[in-house]
Nucleic acid binder design. Structure first.
Lengths: 240, 240
DNA sequence: TCCTCTAGTTGAACGCGTTCAAAACGAGCG
DNA sequence: CGCTCGTTTTGAACGCGTTCAACTAGAGGA
């Protein structure tokens, strides 16, 4: 099995390599499965033996992209102790490393919004990768000198930062400004706000807000069926 | 021209009607253009004479959906003066009226994230509708007794609320909880926060934050090429 | 009445992603 | 060497969205 598997792994890697190169060169839509197969020197059916669909090739790209991101983050995470600098460095690195794929990253998020797609970040197939990315943000927090007091918030923050990064990427995909300057400025600004929020939110005046918000998040993220059969009509001509 | 045009408009409407019905019944992906054409009693090519692509049928749906939303909002907007109740009513109405299309709404946002798609909310083809939706939120604000002091913020708020609604819809698409209870709870909670923010943000302690944020928004939304060649590295080991 | 010209309509044909029955390969065994 | 059985590979075929050259309908002018 070991020898056989090795051969298979080789073919698989070769097809993926060829596909990503073609994606970078011509974009996703203009790269056909036939072209990938031909360039890789295999039959179309063979590509489907290793990748369930054209979209699954992107899923593979997604994982490699995260690895590159981790690599690029390493120096900042090792040296820097300031939370703002850490978070900023990590997000900047994300955009920097993604830049060569700006053209074809579109598709990446196209299917990402489709609940039925395997690329959808909430799908089971993406769960493993999502976990890894969340871990990165956990490390951003853990390695900083800023301590998050509230344990519930501490637990929730990595997930929230993951969501934040998704938002930044979504913006970046639509960003046509020179060298995506707008995206970088958005990062500059929002990182400041977020770090300020993290340090302020646990202070007494904001406690009730934080508490109810954490409750909501807990409810929203519990995949298990319902949370509570809450009223949605309680609001109407309230504080008259 | 008038008579001829009438005939055309009739066919167009009939095709759209047929398509939307099939979408509701079988979902988007499982409804083929051939099936639409057959059900409408025309040739496939004829459908393409009126709608440039299958996706453009969704764009048409999008517009109709907004009309229904406006209709559903009317009573609340006419009677209610409390901002929180108005905003809550409008968002609840959006989900309520969209509910029959929950299954197929997925596709709606699938292509929405693709910059090249006509469905992308930032595309020129969507500009008219985006404008109309933004106007709705302008009315939500204008008709409430809450006055937004800062004129820049007042101008920006409808756009921000539009973005907010997009976020809610995105969540709703992925929401599989019974009767989408999670989405309604999310609305309940976030509306409260947003209204509180609107009233607090213009107070002295938050002024600098508001000002820089408004500057950023102005920059981000100016479609004209660049805004400023800002540094993105100013952050690093800052407040040591 | 017939001609003309535009709006409307047709359906075969194209290239795409994807499927699948069948073939080829290759390690282990007698 | 020949046989077996699971892994790997093949490519014709399917159904889809989309295109386009050709056709029809019908209003208006001569």
């Amino acid at each position: 099995m070991s020898e056989t598997t090795r051969k298979g792994e080789q073919t698989r890697a070769h097809i993926l390599e060829t596909a990503l190169q073609l994606f970078r060169e011509r974009g996703y839509e203009d790269t056909t499965m036939r072209a990938i197969a031909e360039a890789a020197g295999v039959a179309v059916g063979n590509a489907y033996y290793y990748f369930r669909s054209k979209e699954h090739l992107i899923q593979a790209f997604y994982e490699r992209s995260h690895d590159e991101h981790l690599e690029a983050c390493r120096p900042i995470l090792a040296q820097e102790r300031d939370l703002r600098a850490r978070l900023h460095g990590v997000l900047k690195a994300k955009i920097d490393t993604s830049m060569p794929y700006h053209r074809f990253a579109a598709v990446l998020f196209k299917s990402a919004a489709d609940p039925k797609s395997p690329l959808n970040p909430f799908s089971d197939e993406s769960a493993a990768l999502r976990e890894r990315v969340t871990e990165l943000f956990a490390e951003v927090l853990a390695g900083s000198r800023t301590r998050v007091g509230n344990p519930q918030l501490r637990e929730e923050l990595p997930h929230l930062l993951w969501t934040y990064q998704m938002g930044i990427i979504l913006f970046w995909i639509h960003d046509e400004s020179p060298e995506c300057g707008r995206t970088y400025r958005l990062i500059d600004h929002t990182v400041k706000i977020i770090v300020r929020l993290i340090t302020l939110i646990d202070l007494p005046p904001f406690r009730p807000l934080l508490w109810t918000t954490l409750e909501l998040l807990k409810d929203l993220r519990s995949k298990g069926r319902d949370g509570q059969s809450s009223p949605t009509n309680e609001i109407s001509g309230s504080n008259e």
